[in-house]
Design a protein around this nucleic acid. Structure first.
Length: 368
RNA sequence: UCCCCUGUGAUGUAACGGCAGCAUACUUGACUGUUAAUCAAGGCGUGGUGGUUCGAAUCCACCCGGGGGAG
């Protein structure tokens, strides 16, 4: 299943009922963001994140560990392409990563803040999520093996501290996922997977740097999965390209989360079954000016069913009309919901390999 | 007919006589546990003709266009 991001307590642009109507029964909120603003006390005042955002279905909360990575190293694309950190880390700054946790500068008020394993679990307890992720350090790609090894070991110690805190103070009905690190090194990935699997976690997430390109990413994921037992659910953190989801399912991943569908939607890009175009069509492009084509031929999503043309979307996008961003967010989330349902059905009928190949070749996801 | 003001990319505007810059728009590209309705790149310009000057968007003359005033 795919889990849309509701980082700051909302799937950007959509109401909870719209997200649910697209077939989603889980969203992912972020401990880091919600801790800084509005703060765990305020969310608790409203009775937890579910009540606060009026989402009456399961919520995963990310631990905040990834923020350390993104503040210090920019986006994944920046890192892979050797660009200087930009965007997300312009104001946020990591001050120090220590055994106890991370000191950083708040992007909200500029003040110095701290987050460690106990802090993260405490905030996630206050948020009242159904599924908490343990606090980890997401090691970047451009870091040597020695640092990755030591960081991964520290992440394992943080894992134990998270479990200890949760056992003593955490909500009884809150599940906890451990996180596999280990960078792009086979032995570290396998060892990390085994370490995490040896703990009493309810599920296992794969995080960290997954490599510089897709083949390496698939390889790294397969290493990590190799060290995990089959009994517990496996989550692949932060992955959401169409082909990556297909491959991930084939590798044995159960759930994914990613900013991609919603972010691309707000940036004017619609997902389409076209591998040659990397599954994307940029509706801000001039060539759609007079196009009467639908966003995607045969798409059953609300945006396409309404009959909107690419020419209309391009016009709305140029005008920066919010409607366009909502229409594309809906379309993209609907696309991924169908893709995952299609793959799920293929697994059930024992035809995953063939179906995955067809989808990878550009077959549109089936309408349930 | 005379007088005054004014002409800088598509648009709105900067530039003591010293590398014509900014914003918007446009075109293209990027986006993988979201500080992102974001970010990056690109193309496009001194109304015309002369003159002064080492050097003119800038100063001078005339012409052309626009605005205002007097008749």
């Amino acid at each position: 299943a795919f889990v849309p991001l509701a980082t700051k307590g909302t799937v950007k642009g959509l109401e909870p009922r719209e997200v649910a109507a697209l077939g989603y029964d889980m969203v992912l909120g972020n401990t880091f963001h919600l801790m800084l603003d509005p703060g765990p006390e305020l969310v608790a005042h409203f009775g937890g994140l579910h009540e606060f955002m009026a989402w009456r279905a399961p919520i995963i909360t990310d631990s905040g560990g990834f923020q350390v990575f993104s503040m210090g190293h920019g986006t994944v694309a920046d890192e892979i392409k050797g660009r200087a950190p930009s965007g997300a880390n312009r104001m946020g700054r990591v001050l120090a990563i220590e055994e106890d946790g991370v000191r950083f500068r708040s992007y909200v008020d500029g003040g110095e803040r701290f987050m460690g394993p106990e802090t993260s679990m405490e905030v996630q307890a206050a948020l009242g999520s159904d599924l908490a992720l343990v606090f980890d350090e997401c090691t970047p790609l451009n870091v040597d093996r020695d640092y990755t090894a030591r960081s991964t070991e520290r992440t394992h110690r943080w894992l134990d501290r998270c479990l200890t805190w949760h056992e003593q103070h955490g909500p009884r009905d809150q599940l906890v996922y451990g996180i596999v690190q280990g960078g792009v090194h086979e032995d570290l990935r396998i060892a990390s997977a085994q370490e995490v699997a040896a703990r009493p976690v309810d599920g296992i997430a794969i995080g960290g740097s997954l490599g510089a390109d897709k083949p390496q990413m698939y390889e790294v994921v397969s290493w990590a999965i190799g060290g995990i037992d089959e009994a517990r659910p496996r989550h692949l953190l932060g992955i959401g390209d169409v082909d990556d989801l297909i491959r991930g399912v084939e590798l044995g991943i159960d759930t994914f989360d990613c900013a991609m569908p919603t972010r691309l939607g707000r940036h004017g890009v619609a997902l389409v079954p076209d591998p040659r175009k990397r599954w994307r069509v940029d509706l801000t492009a001039a060539r759609w000016k007079q196009s009467r084509e639908p966003i995607m031929e045969g798409c059953p999503c609300p945006s396409c069913e309404a009959g909107h043309t690419r020419g209309y979307l391009r016009y709305l996008l140029r005008q920066r009309e919010l409607t366009a961003l909502r229409l594309l967010t809906v379309h993209n989330l609907a696309y991924l919901a169908r893709l995952m349902a299609d793959l799920r059905a293929a697994i059930a009928s024992g035809t995953l390999a063939e179906r995955a190949a067809a989808l990878r070749a550009g077959a549109p996801p089936a309408t349930p």
